[in-house]
């Protein structure tokens, strides 16, 4: 099942980067855009104006649940047919 591996804010790109991993090493990145590219030339990033309304925990939970639902369905299939999972 997927779970939170690490998260950080990348100031250069303006993303809150959240990495989920499952026990087999599969990765999925959730990136919440908290900044806008304001200058293509110099790469300056300015904060978005809706940061107060963002709920990262809910975003993580939502994506995590979607991934795990998908994974559970495959594991159920494997279990039903006696297949090895790797």
């Amino acid at each position: 099942m997927y779970s939170l591996h690490e998260q950080y804010v990348d100031m250069a790109s303006g993303f809150h980067v959240i990495e989920l991993r499952d026990e087999r090493g599969h990765r999925h990145l959730i990136q919440i855009a908290i900044g806008l590219d304001c200058c293509p030339a110099c790469g300056a990033v300015h904060p978005k104006d809706n940061l107060e309304a963002l709920d990262p925990a809910a975003a993580i939970a939502g994506v995590n649940e979607a991934l795990n639902t998908s994974q559970r369905q495959m594991l159920t299939y494997a279990g039903k047919h006696g297949l090895r999972v790797r």
């Binding site: 790109s13 999925h28 963002l54």
Partner: peptide, 25 residues
């Protein structure tokens, strides 16, 4: 790795690239 970039405004275009650690839009 797969990714989900959230909080993207409507009516925008973006080029998605992988910078080795994460996605850039």
């Amino acid at each position: 790795a797969s990714g989900s970039i959230m909080n993207v405004a409507y009516a925008t275009n973006g080029f998605v690239v992988w910078d080795g650690q994460k996605y850039q839009l």
